[in-house]
Computed example of a mutant assay.
Amino acid sequence: MSKKKIKADSTIGLTLKTMVISPIALAYLVYSIFQSQIQSFDSISTSLLLIDSGIVTALQLLLFTKSAKKVSLTMLGILQYISPTISLIGGVFLYHEVLTNAHFIAFVFIWCALAVYTISSITKWRQEQMKNEINMEA
């Protein structure tokens, strides 16, 4: 079931998700500390940054779930491709990551498919608008 169809408030949904995943994350964190695999708690500033990153992530999720109910599913689906695209562009141009031929071809195919879908949706929408105008004139 999509988030768009659930009538519960997004705050409740985020709270439930957090309640489910928190014990697992906490158990892993405790395990890692005892295995000396985590050294990020050595400094207070790093610990505060880690805590703040959790707050920022939760805020972003909360805003996303609230806005997802106000946007069409088509637009929401297209918007889901923007973040990975920005990450890809940032990785290639800012961090000089290697963009293999396979990655590039997959990227092109994905955006070509999105272009075809978008053009199809716009054409269908225009046809419906023209039908509505003709029906109103008659």
Rank of each mutant, 00 (worst) to 15 (best):
K3Q: 10
K3S: 06
K5G: 03
K5N: 11
T11L: 10
I12E: 04
L14I: 02
T15M: 07
L16Q: 06
K17Q: 14
I21N: 01
I21G: 01
I21L: 01
P23H: 11
P23T: 07
I24F: 12
A25E: 07
L26Q: 05
Q37V: 02
Q37M: 09
Q37F: 11
F41V: 05
D42H: 13
L49V: 06
V56C: 08
T57W: 14
Q60V: 04
L62G: 02
L63H: 06
T65C: 03
T65R: 12
K69F: 03
K69S: 00
V71P: 00
M75P: 00
G77P: 03
L79S: 10
Q80M: 11
Y81N: 07
P84A: 04
I86W: 03
L88N: 08
G91F: 04
F93P: 02
F93K: 08
Y95E: 09
H96K: 14
L99Q: 09
A102G: 08
H103V: 00
A106C: 09
F107R: 05
F109W: 10
V116E: 11
Y117R: 13
I119N: 08
T123W: 13
K124E: 10
W125M: 05
W125F: 09
R126N: 07
E128N: 14
Q129R: 15
M130D: 11
E133N: 06
I134V: 05
N135C: 10
N135K: 15
E137Q: 07
A138P: 06
A138D: 15
